[in-house]
């Protein structure tokens, strides 16, 4: 292997090798981004203009409550699960105790035309499902849960 005469030769310095491939990917991303701008540029501008126009006329049309409710509940769920879990180390209690209210609240957030029967089903589901998951996984199979 005489590296001098080979125009394709590449020497990789091991201490720096962690950057070699990421650099290639950066170039590929840049080139693709430029090509997209070139090929679809006009289309994208049209699209954005159209969107801005409809925004000025109608505002954003989405279910604010359900979207932000979901995000908020999920974040609270993850935070609380870990926090409660640390109160009862290695028992999976954080998962069990926090999953129940989380599931109930999320179901109540999503349900339409609420009635007594639906509420009962929701509550039952919110209690039984996490319990089953916890019992089978943490108790029978000894899987570590928060």
């Amino acid at each position: 292997m005489n590296q001098e005469s080979d125009p394709f030769s590449i020497a990789i310095d091991f201490p720096q090798s962690h950057l070699f491939f990421p650099n290639i990917v950066h170039w590929v991303l840049l080139i693709l981004a430029l090509s997209i701008a070139l090929v679809h540029g006009r289309e994208i501008i049209h699209h954005v203009q159209g969107w801005a126009e409809s925004y000025r006329e109608h505002g954003l049309d989405y279910d604010r409550l359900r979207l932000f409710g979901t995000l908020g509940l999920v974040i609270a769920y993850f935070l609380l699960m870990n926090w409660v879990g640390q109160l009862f180390p290695n028992t999976g209690m954080g998962f069990l105790l926090v999953s129940m209210p989380f599931m109930a609240l999320l179901s109540l957030l999503y349900v339409h035309d609420i009635n007594r029967k639906k509420v009962l089903i929701i509550l039952a589901n919110a209690i039984i499902a996490p319990f089953m998951a916890w019992y089978v996984l943490a108790q029978l199979f000894f899987i570590t849960l928060p």
């Binding site: 292997m1 080979d6 394709f8 030769s9 590449i10 020497a11 990789i12 070699f20």
Partner: peptide, 8 residues
Amino acid sequence: LESFGTLT
């Protein structure tokens, strides 16, 4: 590339 040092 580390082993062979060339793209070919």
